[in-house]
Design a protein around this nucleic acid. Structure first.
Lengths: 201, 201
DNA sequence: GCGCTAACTGGCCGGCCGGTCAATTAGCTG
DNA sequence: CAGCTAATTGACCGGCCGGCCAGTTAGCGC
């Protein structure tokens, strides 16, 4: 509580570097970031970055790991407080995921950079997330509350991908004629999605 | 027909540079590409690149413009050979778009890089594409063949975004447990999507 | 064939990139 | 308080980046 008025504080230094690095990497991607500007932004010498993280690449890995860890634990927490597997749960999951991405634009961009690098690490990370989600869908299908003729993983994938792309490509489609707000789009997507996964009477 | 055995051919040189540049930019993004490697790949001197395109930035713009032009005209062609506005047309449009992206992975990656740059140029380009598509949806809604309580632009957006993200984030979700092939996913997506936009009896 | 334009070449440049290193010193251990 | 570890500094490095320029020459109009 009282500490950190010292002149040296390696943990805080690491944190400052990580913070500045995440902001810059999120904005410009790995190769467009210069260590010099990063050092300036973190109010740290370039040498300190190397001292704490070894190289630019290793720092990039550290930034990604930290961010994806946060993403993962946040999703895991949502998952655990879920209730009975039914259509309402699916709807709430979509809403929660959409709003999580809206509130964490950095994660969305990090995912995008990572995809372009072809790095599949982030995908492996949420294997159990998707696995659990798909299992719920399957159970809901068995209870007759969702259409049974659709691969449960695909159900998860469809809403994850739509939400992700909405925020990832915002600059692309936000000026399309007739395009609505975040909430208006979410509502329309849910109309289509929920109707599409619900069994006919 | 016979020409191009000459020692000089500016058009072919430009084309060679554009070709090599597109391949490299698609793979690595703007800032990770070095003019030296690009020159080597195009079998051209670095000076020649500057001679024909001015700067690295201008070359990047030229590459994007050319690619998006191709995308635009291809979509426009599809649009013109469409028939009566009904649900079947919508389904065929989704299939056509999905397969176009599958067959043009470079375009998908260029879009992704462009989105991360925050460049909205590509979005403005297909304003009329989306406008026309939304208008069709609206007409189909008026004829009672699609649900009328959904913003037509959002209908277009949902399938465009799902298709795009499927290919953009392939490395992310291709190893998810239970994930199917391109065609299996498309089929399931169409089940959800078409059912979701069709009016109840 | 003559001359002009522009395609093309090779050498060069200033700057800054990521990274290293030796020296300094704060802060903990005993 | 001594002694050690590691956080921190600033000077420095080789390499290569994007870009420039003076000079050469192919091809075309006249």
């Amino acid at each position: 509580m009282n500490r950190k008025t010292q002149t040296r504080d390696p943990e805080l230094t690491r944190a400052r570097i990580l913070e500045a690095a995440e902001a810059l990497f999120v904005e410009k991607g790995f190769s467009a970031v210069k260590l010099s500007e990063l050092a300036r932004a973190a109010e740290v010498t370039k040498s300190l970055i190397h001292h704490h993280f070894g190289s630019k690449e290793q720092l990039w890995e550290a930034v990604k790991n930290r961010a994806f860890e946060r993403y993962f634990t946040a999703q895991m927490a949502m998952l655990e407080e879920a209730g009975e597997p039914d259509a309402a749960l699916l709807r709430r999951s979509v809403e929660a995921y959409f709003h999580f991405l809206r509130d964490n634009p950095g994660v969305v961009r990090l995912f995008a950079w990572t995809h372009l690098e072809g790095d599949s690490h982030c995908g492996e990370l949420d294997n159990q997330l998707v696995g659990a989600g798909a299992e719920w869908v399957r159970q809901t299908q068995l209870r007759g509350l969702l259409r049974a003729d659709i691969n449960p993983t695909h159900v998860i994938a469809v809403f994850v991908m739509t939400c992700t792309q909405w925020f990832e490509a915002k600059c692309h489609h936000q000026h399309w004629p007739g395009m609505g707000s975040d909430e208006a789009f979410l509502e329309d997507f849910l109309k289509i999605f929920m109707e599409g996964v619900t069994p006919r009477e």
